Simulated assay, not measured.
Amino acid sequence: METRVFNSAYGELTLFRRPFRPRETLQAWDAADEYLLQQLAERNLDKSTRILIVNDSFGSLSTALADYACTLWVDSAISQLCSTENAARNNKLPPAFIPANSPPSGQFDMILYRLPKSRSLLTYQLQTLAPLCRSGGIFIGAAMARHIDHHIVSAFAKNIATVKPSLAKKKARLMHLEGEIIAVERQSDSKTITLAEHNMVLVNRANVFSRDKLDQGSRIMLASLEKLDTPTNVADLGCGNGILGISAAQHWPNAHVYYADDSFLAIESAKQNVRQNLGEDYSNATFSVSDCLYGYKGEDFDLVLCNPPFHQDHHVGDHIARQMFRDSHKHLALNGVLCVVGNRHLGYHVLLKKLFGNCETINSDSKFVVLRARKTTPSNG
């Protein structure tokens, strides 16, 4: 794995990010993390300071501030893993952890907020954090300047308080709340969509992919299930609200379906949708908030369904998809199938043919392709 040295205001740290890449070009921190830590160091915080860190993608903040009483609140298994692994790499204690679907409570002296990409997650988090700020917690937000626009400023004003971005430093800004914390009633972050053509009703919590409508990639994948052999053990990898896995369970009622996603809010949505669409007694389902299939110990899969993301936070790329493909190959039974949907221009067929030795297109439209790759040789190791 590729590590980088972060010369933070709290000392030199060796950090890495997931997924692991041998020639990593991205860092586990950015200028907004540097700016935030520099300001905190100037405040000479007491060691007893209780700090809530929100959206610390790879644990750079929690590792730097490990000498304080830190709690991490994120919607990402990758963030949780990296905060633990980077703490260990630097001989630090990991932070306490709260998943995004469990609102933090209690007293915090400081709330450090990294701006999320998802607007729905932003609203949910700001409404949840407002009472903690009213209880005396000092709020400091941080983001790269290009990600702070009038929509972000408006969201703060509507859900927590007026915000004043600082002057830019290395193209990063800090955000400080001004005036009184508003007493807005926390609203439900769930959205319900009805898919009559698929006889399905889906509930999507904040930060769930395509929470307003059925995305075209999933639509064409659903139309491709009938072209696949009947499986007994299926993985819906990067499941989001669970639509592919639920459709697989409807199509093959005797199959066990394993739902995996990096997002705690997505898995909570998938659980609710499985109960709602497959019945309260449906037991052929397992759920995991995980970094792809990291740590999976179950039986090999006959079929992995995957609609992979093509970005990680604000970074566009196929590195998450590559990890999903590698993990799928590792945990597929011999002759098992990985079925992937993706935008044509992403070139997944090249990656799959290199990894599996084969790849065929089983469905397509003007924008998307559905690819099938079959495992024909045992996994190495």
Score class of each variant (00 low, 15 high):
Pro131Gln: 00
Ile193Gln: 02
Leu174Phe: 04
Thr162Gly: 06
Glu197Trp: 06
Arg134Ala: 03
His198Ile: 09
Arg173Gln: 07
Val203Phe: 08
Glu197Ala: 11
Asn159Ser: 08
His151Glu: 12
Phe139Ile: 06
Asp189Glu: 11
Asn199Cys: 07
Asn199Pro: 04
Ala196Thr: 09
Ile160Gln: 07
Ala172Lys: 12
Gln187Pro: 05
Pro131Ala: 00
Asn204Ala: 00
Ile140His: 01
His176Leu: 11
Ala130Asn: 03
Met175Leu: 15
Lys191Met: 06
Ile140Ser: 04
Ala142Ile: 04
Val184Cys: 04
Met200Cys: 14
Asn204Val: 08
Met175Val: 03
Glu185Arg: 11
Ala130Ser: 02
Leu202Ile: 02
Arg173Cys: 12
Gly137Thr: 12
Val163Glu: 02
Ile193Cys: 04
Cys133Thr: 10
Phe139Thr: 04
Leu174Met: 06
Leu177Val: 05
Thr162Ala: 04
Ala143Ile: 10
Ile138Asp: 02
Arg186Glu: 07
Ile160Val: 04
Glu185Ser: 10
Leu129Val: 07
Asp149Glu: 07
Met175Asp: 06
Gln187Cys: 03
Glu197Ile: 02
Lys171Val: 11
Ser188Pro: 14
Leu195Pro: 00
Thr162Tyr: 12
Ile182Phe: 05
Leu132Ala: 03
Cys133Lys: 02
Glu197Asn: 13
Leu177Gln: 10
His198Lys: 07
Ser166Pro: 10
Val201Trp: 05
Cys133Leu: 01
Val184Tyr: 06
Leu174Ser: 05
Ala145Phe: 12
Ser188Cys: 03
Met175Asn: 03
Val163Phe: 13
Lys169Arg: 14
Ser188Phe: 08
Val184Asp: 08
Thr162Phe: 09
Lys170Trp: 10
Ala143Thr: 15
Ile152Tyr: 13
Leu195Gly: 02
Val163Ile: 13
Leu195Phe: 06
Gly179Trp: 09
His150Tyr: 12
Met144Gln: 15
Pro131Gly: 00
Cys133Asn: 08
Ala168Cys: 14
Ala143Asp: 01
Cys133Gln: 08
Met200Val: 09
Lys171Leu: 12
Ser154Trp: 04
His150Ile: 15
His176Lys: 06
Leu177Asp: 07
Thr162Pro: 02
Lys158Tyr: 06
Glu180Ala: 13
Ala168Arg: 15
Ala183Leu: 06
Ser135Trp: 00
Asp189Gln: 06
Leu202Cys: 09
